[in-house]
Design a protein around this nucleic acid. Structure first.
Ligand SMILES: [Mn+2]
Ligand SMILES: [Mn+2]
Ligand SMILES: [Zn+2]
Ligand SMILES: [Zn+2]
Lengths: 157, 157
DNA sequence: TATGTTAATGAAAACAGTTTTCATTATGAG
DNA sequence: CTCATAATGAAAACTGTTTTCATTAACATA
């Protein structure tokens, strides 16, 4: 049985066309690892659809972001990174970034405690600063085991 | 009485020269508002020292970052922003960003609760993922009162 | 205080990620 | 099937940042 992609209805409903490049890009985002850069997504896309242009990848990612299907992340390495926030088994989570090699880990341990504190903070910030909060990001920066090893070998600090 | 700048010793100690451009840049960071972009810092700097080049501002900010005196922030508007993390009355805090106008607010309410949870998370992530965590960022994104008003008037969503 | 070494600087060019332009293509309503 | 036009791809433009390199000035030394 054919499982209709979860996003088609959303596209048509909002007046956007369902095109081959868009299908391919969403497929790559669904199949491949998270936190892909635009270039990485592009290279995956052209493996199956060589005709798709880099510009279209940029445009589609921005569209998906506006639709709330994707979130754009910046871990300070000069590349914008994207991950699906909807569809398959995506759940809200936070990030652990190695400043040595750029590796990014998702973690969702502490989900309950974090959520509780975040909701409390959002309520209070809303009241105190008159801000309506839509989203948040929590990033931890550090060094993974490998990068600590390398540093010790080379002797940088 | 002349108060010796807190950072001079640190510079000399690490073999870095104390220069006029560096003095000026640090003064701007101390005096002016936080979260300044490089261009903003540059424009302040050349008000008193017209000779200083943009390149030197970039280089000095990177140096200050390596020395741990400044933190680089990215709120997704395409500009790197910097704020002193040491000196004057700087204390660790988190951020509230308006996605409408780019305004950034520091908040340090919840310092105790956040710190407690963060330390707990750091310990657990260290153990589970073998990561040594050096720093973290918490960003809340939303709309300030003014930007909610504008949106309603214009009718976007 | 004068001198020499070389870290630091400024201007220009290069770089790289992203956005814009515009002629062409193809989606999907009728 | 036909048509209006949203979407596309290639090239050019854009822009924040980095690199290059000749010149300047900080500061250790005498
Ligand atoms: Mn993630
Ligand atoms: Mn701040
Ligand atoms: Zn690493
Ligand atoms: Zn605002």
């Amino acid at each position: 049985m054919y499982k209709r992609p979860w996003w088609r209805g959303q596209f048509r409903q909002r007046g956007f066309r369902v095109t081959v490049p868009r299908e391919t890009i969403i497929k790559v985002l669904s199949d491949r690892k998270k936190h892909m850069s635009v270039e990485e997504i592009f290279h995956e896309v052209i493996k199956t659809n060589p005709g798709v242009g880099l510009t279209t990848v940029y445009r589609t990612l921005e569209l998906l972001r506006n639709m709330g299907f994707v979130s754009k992340l910046d871990f300070g390495d000069g590349f914008s990174r994207y991950e699906l926030t909807i569809g398959d088994g995506s759940t809200h989570h936070h990030h652990l970034v190695c400043t040595g090699c750029g590796k990014v880990l998702d973690y969702s341990d502490f989900a309950e405690q974090e959520t509780a504190l975040i909701q409390e903070i959002e309520r209070a910030l809303n009241k105190k600063y008159n801000f309506v909060i839509n989203t948040h990001q929590i990033h931890f920066f550090g060094l993974c085991k490998d990068c600590r090893g390398e540093q010790n070998e080379i002797g940088i600090v």
